[in-house]
Design a protein around this nucleic acid. Structure first.
Length: 390
DNA sequence: TCTGGGGTCCTAGGACCC
DNA sequence: TCTGGGGTCCTAGGACCC
């Protein structure tokens, strides 16, 4: 989708169509999406909200409404599935479609693209762009070039001619860090990298990145899709797999340890509830702290047994947080962000449960979690919470 | 008013095992 | 001329994506 969040948020507000609109970017936030009038002022997604405000003080700023965005996203993904079941969803507003099996029914890839674009325009009042190619990364590159509201084809026999002259940064998977690293090595264009033998590339950049980059510069990365939306709308099959986390940038930097602990508890309760709702358990707990100088550290701990119990995750997280704060000495930096993540998730199996230490009394936390989950499910988030969070 | 929040994957060192 | 080779697991950091 083109500027998805912004497009959907203003879809039913025609008075905003021709004025700069920014979604996100509130206090200490970044821009999630900007409509094209805002982009003409230089506003881009990922940019600090303060910078966007400087570039265009008159822009209309709004928070994303996922109650609005998620159903639109789901409906669009369903539209894609009317063409092919081979849809790999990568985010709320983007997916890859393998249309090789749909050509006889729906015509050329270009015809399919126009069919989908006009349906999405008619049903949701927003535009999208389509890249057509033989592999994931080339299709992605083509779709970026197609924006806004366009279609672009990069056929395999045109790849070298059309992509090799471009900066390596256009490749899907080459971010700013790798781009700069390559530039320092004198490799500026895609063609420059393509001229390096793969063995040398691997020695220069490491085994995986070298191999991956060699494939990218020849338009030869993967073409088989993984249908579904692992990590976007849920999980695929197989285990162990995945992680779930929550992090929060505090409204102001905080030194008070009790306040940080409460924030950690709030985040932990949210994450553990999501783990339980997904029918998973996890074994590794990771705590993230970002200090006021923006240095970010993580500490993780793997438990003897997987858990979905809020109190178990919190106990581990608290130990990690305290360890981090103690390591900073008696006068630690103020904290800007705290986060907690549960990794090594696997499907909950009947009989899974915490191993009680001999003689220990079952404290009943799993039962408490289930009761809280049910109450919140029926009466909303405000129904039950820890007293320390009131 | 500097810099979000949700993820995935890779690297590298050390512990540990056979 | 004292120390291999194969492997897994854990931890910390970093790159990348939207």
């Amino acid at each position: 989708m083109d500027a998805f969040y912004a497009s959907v948020m203003i879809r039913d507000r025609p008075e905003l169509h021709d004025v700069p609109v920014v979604v996100g970017g509130g206090h200490r936030g970044v821009v999630l999406s900007a409509n094209y009038p805002a982009r003409r002022h230089g506003i881009r997604s990922g940019m600090p909200g303060a910078e966007a405000a400087r570039l265009c003080p008159d822009a209309v700023t709004m928070a994303p409404d996922f109650g609005l965005l998620t159903p639109v996203s789901r409906a669009i993904m369903e539209t894609f599935r009317t063409v092919t079941p081979l849809v790999e969803v990568t985010s709320l507003d983007e997916a890859f479609l393998d249309v090789r099996g749909a050509l006889r029914l729906f015509g050329s890839p270009e015809a399919i693209a126009e069919r989908l674009r006009s349906r999405i325009r008619a049903e949701h009042g927003i535009t999208c762009s389509v890249g057509i190619a033989a592999t994931i990364s080339v299709a992605k590159l083509a779709s970026r070039q197609a924006k806004p509201d366009g279609v672009r084809v990069i056929a395999p026999d045109r790849f070298v001619e059309e992509v090799h002259p471009l900066d390596v940064g256009v490749l899907y998977g080459v971010g700013e860090a790798t781009r700069q690293r390559l530039h320092r090595l004198g490799l500026v264009s895609v063609g420059d990298v393509a001229a390096i033998p793969p063995d040398l590339l691997r020695r220069m950049l490491g085994r995986h990145l070298g191999t991956h980059l060699h494939a990218l510069v020849w338009g030869a990365d993967r073409s088989e899709l993984v249908p579904g939306g692992a990590g976007v709308f849920g999980f695929g099959e197989g285990e162990p797999e995945g992680s779930m986390g929550a992090q929060h940038t505090l409204a102001v930097d905080v030194r008070d340890r009790d306040a940080l602990r409460r924030e950690l508890l709030r985040l932990t309760a949210r994450v553990a509830a999501r783990v339980r709702a997904a029918g998973r358990t996890g074994r590794t707990v990771t705590v993230t702290v970002r200090y006021s100088d923006f240095t970010t550290v993580q500490r993780s701990r793997t438990l003897p047994e997987p858990t979905d119990v809020t109190q178990d995750v919190y106990a581990a997280a608290l130990t990690l947080l305290d360890g981090l704060l103690d390591a900073r000495g008696p006068r630690p930096l103020a904290v800007r962000l705290v986060g907690v993540r549960v990794e090594g998730l696997r499907r909950l199996r009947p009989g899974d449960g915490r191993q009680l230490v001999l003689g220990e009394r079952d404290p009943g936390w799993p039962d408490a979690d289930r009761a809280v989950d049910r109450a919140v499910d029926r009466f909303g988030q405000a129904a039950v919470r820890r007293a320390s969070l009131l």
